[in-house]
Amino acid sequence: MFLIIQPKLSERMKSTDLCLSSEGTEVILATSSDEKYPPENIIDGSSETFWTTTGMFPQEFIINFHKCVKISKLTIQCYLVRSLRIEKSLSKDPVDFEECVEKDLQYTEGALQTEEFSLPEFQATYLRFIIKSAFDHFVSVHTVMAEGLVDNI
């Protein structure tokens, strides 16, 4: 299914998940690369597939929307993440990141951590997720959702 967002009508459009490879979004960097659990699994729209880190922290991944988007809510589903920092960039290239939010997550034995960040609406072309520390040697990231609108094309 394709959702087509009209720029001028954006205020009236229902917001959508922008972190989907089907929307043209890409993961352009990830610091761990087990080919069986690639970072693309974060943006495939499924909680069942995941990206794994393969040892040591910090670990990070960068999401490229390939366009300017307006985000009002971020949700991450992961496991064993202790300290998470999210940064944004509005640049054409993945540089000049600024902090969005930093948080210590709760340990959730045997269940996914689902963390929602309701933020003042902000613009971004890139999002960078830094896993600073963890409750174990390894973590998994299952999905990232960014609710918002395409700002301009």
């Binding site: 659990y37 045997g110 269940a111 998994s140």
Partner: peptide
């Protein structure tokens, strides 16, 4: 072992 755990979460 940890990857097995990750699979079992969903």
């Amino acid at each position: 072992e940890k990857v097995e755990t990750f699979h079992s979460l969903v």
